[in-house]
């Protein structure tokens, strides 16, 4: 077919203008996001300051490790790093309870990806992020401190889990909004305990600190698991009593 013929055919036939195009486009149901896409999208809705504060905590720990020499008190530097973990845990908790803090629960609950899925997505994102941070902190601490990797992990995770466990307990049993202040208070108290604990434990055996941290670790893990299960169950099955 020559170009001339093509042109003449084009000119001879006039295409009908579309009928009901606007309505069709309006009613057209696009393929929805799948769960993975939804979780990936949620990464962009984690607040910038959440990323920033956690990186700042990590940065402070690097600075401390680099510039502070070992103290005479056993494990003192590890105790100090450990006492910053409650603030990392606080950032995690604040991000998880954003919906309730800003009264978005009801609106979010009525969406395709309901509140329990938003909660799980945030928990997954923040869990992975904090896991990476803790791992990097532990690796770096291992370069500067003599305690060994297992002990470092124990000291980092114990206060982190304890603060998360206690915070989730407060969120699950809240009577009024403002639970975030309780969580902040818990983080500060656990952090202060971490600071003063080595001075107090100095008079006992050198290993007592490790025993204390092991107990805290087990208690914290137990609380986190039970309270998270409770929290998810509350969102998924019971739904709220908004009254």
């Amino acid at each position: 077919m020559t170009d001339k013929l093509k042109k003449e055919i084009k000119e001879a036939f006039e295409i009908d203008s579309p009928v009901g195009k606007k309505q069709f486009l309006k009613d057209f149901r696009y393929p929805k996001l799948n769960k993975t896409d939804f979780i990936l999208e949620q990464i962009f809705y984690i607040r910038k300051k959440t990323w920033l504060f956690s990186v700042l905590i990590m940065g402070f720990i690097f600075w401390f490790l680099h510039f502070y020499e070992n103290s005479s008190t056993p494990n003192m530097n590890l105790w100090i790093i450990s006492s910053l973990m409650p603030f990392l845990a606080l950032i995690f908790t604040v991000e998880l309870s954003r919906s309730s803090m800003f009264k978005m629960e009801e609106m979010e609950a009525g969406c395709l990806f309901g509140l329990s899925q938003i909660f799980l997505a945030r928990m997954l994102i923040m869990g992975i992020w904090n896991g990476i941070l803790l791992f990097i902190i532990a690796l770096t601490a291992n370069l500067y401190l003599p305690e060994g990797m297992i002990k470092i992990f124990l000291y980092l995770l114990a206060p982190y889990l304890l603060v998360n466990g206690l915070s989730f307990y407060f969120i699950n049993n809240k009577r009024e909004r403002g639970e975030i202040y309780s969580c902040a208070a818990i983080a500060v108290m656990v952090s202060i305990c971490g600071m003063i604990m080595p001075r107090f434990l100095k008079r006992y055996s050198e290993n007592i600190g490790t025993w204390v941290m092991s107990v805290v670790w087990i208690t914290g893990l137990f609380m986190v698991l039970t309270q998270l299960r409770k929290m998810h169950k509350k969102l998924e099955e019971d739904r709220w009593n908004f009254a």
Partner: peptide
């Protein structure tokens, strides 16, 4: 659904808010 009392995330502008809600509604 429009609830009677609803809040908003303070860091959001109107467009961000709608895009966030659209993501929750599964809209690409």
């Amino acid at each position: 659904y429009l609830p009677q009392n609803f809040g908003y995330y303070p860091e959001f502008c109107a467009m961000d808010f709608l895009l966030y809600m659209a993501a929750l509604k599964g809209i690409p």
